[in-house]
Write a protein that binds this DNA or RNA. Structure first.
Lengths: 190, 190
DNA sequence: TCACTCCTTACGAACGTTCGTAAGTCTATA
DNA sequence: TATAGACTTACGAACGTTCGTAAGGAGTGA
């Protein structure tokens, strides 16, 4: 289906150049059609954009939920550390994360409320996934550590590493990952 | 001087709409001149942009260095925690941080190398500032904690909180700040 | 099987608008 | 009187969008 091709190419272009920077003609070009033909699939550039955004949100959430399902039997330490590495590695494999971050961090003004709502639901879901995880495995934590605090703290570090991912200096990212993990794990276990 | 007015307005518009989304005419409009008059001060939109970017980098670094100078006698705990709050609070007061983050995270393609170089120097300087701080005050740390690790870990948390700042949910930011700080400080002290 | 209609997808041509940029002119200040 | 800075006018290029049209497939009734 050409609609999916369009959304896939649009994702890449929007990730690379942003909403305003990506043009319909260059998107159409990459798909192999004329820009007017886009209007057979989407009624406007805005329509294409939010359609792409909704997909990216679903994909992002799907990846995380899937990981959680597949690793629910591992120890807390293993779940967390492996997740960090897998999630950061995902960045290289598709533009979905890049697009999603760009759009969530700096939404085009005309979509601001809509995207803020999406972001809010995403983070809410993410947090409750991690709350459950930490609650289930709180025996792995040092007594006296609030599982919710530990979860939020972990997610903050994850966000911090995402920033480093955007900067694009892999060796620095690696050092930050090592340091942050060590200090974090030392903080939540004895 | 009108050049400074221009850069100030440009900073706001670029922060709000990005490089491609901000137009010279709207910038000129806000300054109170015609867009063609911009060319009396800058030779192109690109020129205005990187000029604005260089200013924003200097400002960002200045704020941090100044804070470090003024608080060099405080305890490590106080320096760090107060910095977190002051730096996050700075976000509301000017668009400099927003512009700088937007540009560093997602540079327009034609400026990519130039901005990556700036970002790299900025982070390098930031890290060495914190390396010195943690080295100077390593007695405040739990023995066995590597001061460099503690510094990088702190900076990663800072970045993570910046992301939360961009999301724009103050109450969530507050919870993350509290949790992250508590876990972090528990990790680096006994 | 045939003809008819409907829907999807694609196209060329053109629309109005906005963009960044250029050249030349006027005017105030120093 | 020289210069900086703002103005007017104008430009080509690119933008998103609309229109009319055409090819192809799916389903329907004769």
């Amino acid at each position: 289906m050409k609609s999916n091709d369009l959304k896939e190419v649009a994702l890449n272009q929007f990730a690379l150049h942003g909403y305003q920077g990506a043009s319909l003609s260059s998107i159409a070009n990459e798909v192999g059609i004329k820009k007017q033909s886009i209007y057979a699939h989407f009624k406007s550039k805005e329509d294409l954009f939010i359609s792409t955004y909704n997909d990216s949100l679903v994909n992002e959430l799907y990846f995380i939920k899937q990981y959680m399902l597949e690793n629910s039997s591992s120890s807390l330490k293993e779940v967390l550390y492996t997740f960090l590495n897998e999630y950061l590695g995902r960045y290289e494999k598709s533009h979905n994360m890049n697009f999603f971050m760009r759009t969530s961090f700096f939404p085009p003004v005309q979509f601001e409320q809509q995207i803020k709502k999406g972001t809010n639901e995403f983070v809410d879901e993410l947090e409750s996934l991690y709350f459950s995880l930490f609650e289930d495995k709180k025996d792995d934590l040092k007594p006296g550590i609030n599982p919710e605090f530990a979860a939020l703290s972990f997610l903050t570090i994850l966000d911090g590493l995402l920033v480093e991912l955007l900067y694009g200096f892999p060796e620095r990212l690696q050092k930050r990952l090592t340091s942050s993990w060590e200090v974090y794990w030392q903080g939540v276990t004895k």
